[in-house]
Amino acid sequence: MSRPQCPRCSRPIEYCLCALIPQLRSRTRLLILQHPSEVKHALNTARLAALGLSNAELRVGEVFEDLPELLAQPGYQVCLLFPGEDAQSLAQYAEQVGEQPLLLVVPDGTWRKARKLLHCNPLLAALPRVTLAPGLQSRYRLRKAPMSGALSTIEAVVSALDILEAPARFDALLKPFEALIDGQIKAMGEQTYRRNHGDGA
């Protein structure tokens, strides 16, 4: 029998994170497109990001029939946060568009699933691509990063907003994320965590 869940953060009631989720305003609009395989994941950071930002929307699916409408936000310059040969640094791209606010589209899923989202939605693949600065370190202590600089979705969102909305900072978004990870480590036990994810000490 499954445990009762919080209808907002989808965590078991006894581990509800809602008290830690901020409500932050941003000029930048976030559109997070989540692959269905991520919805039931215990560490669903895309949901936390969307809950903590007033100007963010989370959509779940593989094919988004209404993508043209989602991207047609008057006054916004649209770009995709995803690496690629022709990707520009986010800071450089933002400088080029000047005062116009950005609609930042963020695919959420494993790298393979995120690529599938682009493949299934050609309109996404056609967007200008932007990337974060290389060498960023993830606080995601429960997964080994598939490549240097790989971040969880919520970390990528915070890093992007810190660039676009400077001097404003969005670190408060990471509080429920860090509490979630601490809870997972506590549940598995420190020794198990160290053996599987730590330094073995």
Rank of each mutant, 00 (worst) to 15 (best):
Y76I: 06
N55E: 13
V97D: 14
K113R: 15
G75K: 03
Q88H: 12
D108Q: 03
D108N: 01
A114M: 12
Y76W: 07
V105P: 09
E85V: 09
S89W: 09
L103R: 01
L103S: 01
C120P: 00
P107S: 09
L102E: 06
N55P: 04
E69P: 02
V97A: 13
S54F: 08
R115F: 01
A49W: 04
N121A: 09
E99N: 14
A91Y: 05
G98Y: 11
L118K: 06
V63T: 15
S54V: 11
L102M: 08
A50T: 10
P68Y: 07
P68C: 13
T110D: 05
T110R: 06
A94E: 00
L70Q: 13
N55G: 07
L58C: 03
D86Q: 15
D66V: 03
L48Y: 04
L67A: 11
K113A: 14
G75V: 02
G84Y: 09
E99C: 10
R59S: 02
F82V: 04
E95Y: 11
G98V: 12
G84K: 13
A50M: 05
C120V: 06
V106E: 03
P107E: 05
D66P: 06
V60A: 08
F64S: 05
D66T: 09
C120W: 12
V78I: 00
R115Q: 10
P83D: 08
L51V: 04
A114C: 15
Q73K: 13
F82R: 01
A114G: 12
D86W: 10
D108E: 08
P107H: 05
K116F: 09
P83G: 02
A56L: 03
Y93N: 06
G61A: 09
G109Q: 04
L70K: 07
V63R: 15
N121R: 08
Q73P: 02
N55V: 00
